[in-house]
Amino acid sequence: LLDSAAHVALAALTALSWLGAGSLVLAPLRSSGDRILDLLNRIGAGALAFALLTFAAGWVGLLYAEAYVPLAALAASSGLVAGARLLRGARLPVDLSRWQLVLAALLGLYVVLAVVATAAPISSADALLYHAAGPELYEQRHRLVETPWVWHSYQPYTVELLVTDGFLLWDSVQGAFAVLLLGLAGLAAVVGAAGRLAGRAAALLAGAVLAAAPFALWTTSSTFVEPGLVLTMALAGWNLVEFARRGDAASLALAGLFAGAAAGIKYQGALAAVLLAAAAAVVLRRRLEPRTALVFAAPAVVVALPWYVKNAVLTGNPVYPFVFGGLNPEAERAAAESYESYGQGESPLDLLLLPVRLLADADEFDRGEFASPLYLLFAPLALLGAWPRRPLVATWAAGLVYLLAWFFGSQQLRFLAPLGPAFAFLAALGILALTAQRRVGRAVTVAVVTGALATGLAVSLIYTAQFVPVVTGRESEREFLTEKTSYYEGIDWLNRNLPPGARVAIGHVFILYVDRPALWWSSDALTTTAGPSESRRFFRRYRITHAQIFDRDVARIRQLEYAGARRIARVTVHAVTSRTLAEIGPPETVVVYALPRARRARPATPSAQASGVSSAASSRERRPADVLNAGSSARLCRAAASARASPTGTTKPFTPSSTSSRAAPTASVATSASPAAAASLSTMPQGSERDGRTNTSACA
């Protein structure tokens, strides 16, 4: 319990440090005159500043707690002063009506639930694979590390670098709290913006639609990047509204800054940013001129570009592995299977049925059944009210374009996060509009909204209850992880039995808690059809000393035999098919192999040579020396796959990270090994609620 309290206290310090850094960064800009907006702008800009600073420090190998902690403390003290100044004289509203008080209390309760869920050890699959596993690696190596075995790590990584700061401050849970802070700031931004635009009732309703649902609780407390998208899109939108009202360049520049920040969080954020800009251009077309476009676009490009340039340098593809490709065919197939495993199809009929399915049969959308139905029920009704029509229609149009891109991409509901702020606001307007329409409208609205919120709360309480024992110290972390993360028994065996210098290849995606350096033995890293020399090169390149794979994974077993590995243990493991319901899959067996010592010692440095991919050299070699390069297999693929080619296309080394969510488990698994393995793995749970797919899709 003390640990949890300390995490909360340090999260407060983190928030203050963002406020302090943001106050410094935004000092040249004039105040908007709205203290809540000023506060959130500074917090958002400060978070972005810390992320970019962490990126730069990681690039040059300076990711040390000794550097970060004093800086954060200094920024936090400055944030304390700035916050006190901003909030001087502020008062909490005291004249809330009863239902408004209930909604405010509900939001407060959800904040508490989110804190409890976040304070538990990380157990969501995507975080175990890369949202937290990447940052842990960076912290251990004091620099960014390229992890080509998980292609998601090439997505923009703004949020993951804030998670890295959490690791520098303390541990993985502290990293998870950074994400929670983004989520809470996003909620504040939506409530604040809705309040300014449409009053207190709309503010509370928009907040409830956005945050008072188990799905929102899950995304905010699971170390995903979506809360960052919610915050940045909310602030971009709010600042655009300010610009529309006052015509000041500062608001427009801030809108651009946050739109660019969204593009720096995930590829879908770039699409959302472009659509937001397009909608704004339509609404504000009379003010559209080169100068205004530049004031918006310049900061956007500056904060988003580093991620895309990094990918271009490392892989030759700024949006790796999309559009211009780069994965080997097997990895590409696995990734595609993974995206397509969500949703219920992409035919015109499926599109037509989408609203019905989202309401009545949404579990195929990756826990969509836990999302708030209020978006879909009420956002269309915003058009009933007497609000300015053009912004509403433009928002709807941009939202529908994004929805279409999502529909034809990976249909994971959480990838709709960038729409959350705007559509929560529209839903609030719709609720208000219908309550204003005769008594029956009011009665129906009250009943439906109350029912949805009550149902959501019940599920949220059940969901959060599973974290209480570990957060209050009544359950050990080991017990918790055994119950809540798939195949932890195997990880636990490795942690207890392998020598300290071991480096492990793991046949599934849940790698965060392996105490030794570990990688996910994916098709990205080594195709299942790779022969003896390529397999041996793989082991050498990553200096693998041990491997843990499923006993049915004949392809990997064969590759281990190529290297002369010997089997040293068999461990019975279980998939967790539902954390909340404590459901586990049937017993499975993983086997542990030790590779011959002689194979281990070779330093894996610059990838190109080490991997034998001679063609690649180029830009990589110019990179800072300590960026670890792991890159080769991805590069191999790329090289092979591409004739495409720019010379840079073959290089990929370094380290970054990125990505967000997509595909993991199924992906590699599906291609690896036997059909049986593929089948069973594809249903493996991820740590979270039910099935175990990891996400895969992400990019629209």
Partner: peptide, 30 residues
């Protein structure tokens, strides 16, 4: 047909669909 009537019907139908989802889920748990 008034827009508000359509809106009420939309919300009721949508709420019924959502209720089906929740009830189905509860039935699975039971």
């Amino acid at each position: 047909v008034r827009a508000s009537t359509v809106a009420v019907v939309w919300v009721l139908v949508g709420a019924a669909l959502y209720a089906i989802q929740i009830l189905r889920r509860l039935a699975e748990l039971a």
